[in-house]
Computed example of a mutant assay.
Amino acid sequence: MKLGLIINPVAGVGGSVALKGSDGVVEEALARGAVKQANNRTRTALEPLLAVKDKLSFITASGEMGADLLQEMGFRFEVAYQAPKDTSAEDSKAAAKALLDKHVELLLFAGGDGTARDICAVVEETLPVLGVPAGCKIHSGVYAVTPKAAGELIASLHRGELLSLVDADVMDIDESQFRQGVVRAKRFGEMRIPSSLRYVQAVKQGGKESDELVLHDIASEVISRMELGQRFVMGSGSTVAFIMEELGLANTLLGVDLIENEQLLESDLTEAQLFEAIIPGTKLVITLIGGQGHLFGRGNQQLSPRVIRAIGRDNILVVATKRKLQALDGRPLIIDTGDAALDRELTGIYPIITGYRDSVMYRAANPTD
């Protein structure tokens, strides 16, 4: 797993000295004897990950914004942003931009509502995030209930447990009014966070998925993402076949088809035909082999290394029912393209479309991992 880490080192620094926050009062808070606690809170969050630290790598900012703590705890990390000694909101934003450019799979950040606003201004819903509560104001829904809970959530993701991706509000209040006893919270946006598994809409009594309803939901989500002029490579498998059926298009169950503007362009393409048909922005819709968990390398040889590289990891849409994922018992999805370098590029966390506006996070790995 490639995780991002941003710590706002002065988050909550005004709380212990009755300043009710840190916005604009950091120097006064420190002068009153306040002690920075954000790194300690982040240490608590990272402790549940020590047992698997050889399986993790971090991208972070220098100094108190992440690197110092990661080095102290023995995690592997790379510094993508050089932070000044005295940090500000602009450094949180710049660090978030640097980590976004490094394609981290999950961004862990420590702070309060102001920090969440800064991260949201850059990341929005392009990347899953999780907040470590370290500020005075924690009105936003993007934070774990405790620092330790944040680490446990990431540890469960590494174990292969299913975590839903949910939209959570980013809230903040006016600290100047808060210091006068007036609480006025305002919504500033939303970000996507991993959450414990939840079933929505298409379920039977008792929490069991209804396969037919779930497949309808998955198809509706994929179809809603189809934009005019955009090509979609439709992989093999019954889940993808159901999407084609919902579109009213003929499908090659054990082959690969190409559609554009919800119309069939070509059926059962060869690897060479598929490579020639790829244009910028082409998406690949693929599912896993039930029971085995292969994502690439079984039954879809048309998706060669050069085809996958031409499409790009960011344009791969993985679809599956939660029942199929749970049947793996925590085992990762298998990447076996025949190209070792590409296998390494494709490993990591994927958002799996499991319904309409419903996704879970799941790990894919090289078979030798």
Rank of each mutant, 00 (worst) to 15 (best):
T282Y: 08
F232H: 15
S196I: 05
S224D: 14
V10F: 07
S236E: 07
F75P: 10
L56N: 13
E260S: 07
I308G: 10
I353V: 13
R192S: 12
C136Y: 08
V222Q: 09
R313V: 15
A67P: 12
L106F: 02
K20F: 07
L213V: 12
N300F: 03
Q180W: 10
T337F: 08
Q292P: 08
K36H: 13
K324H: 04
G15C: 03
A185H: 11
I173A: 11
F58K: 07
K283E: 07
E72D: 15
K93L: 02
T239R: 04
H294R: 08
G66I: 03
G12R: 03
D268N: 04
C136E: 08
D268H: 02
E28G: 10
G63R: 01
A34V: 04
Q230E: 14
Q292L: 14
D23T: 08
M191L: 15
L249K: 11
D268T: 05
E152P: 00
G312D: 15
D118A: 14
Q301T: 05
K97S: 03
A272F: 00
R313G: 10
L254M: 14
A250C: 03
K97H: 02
G291T: 08
R184H: 14
A202E: 11
L100T: 01
G299Q: 04
T287W: 12
E125M: 09
R306E: 15
Q37D: 08
L317H: 01
E276Y: 07
V25L: 04
A89Y: 03
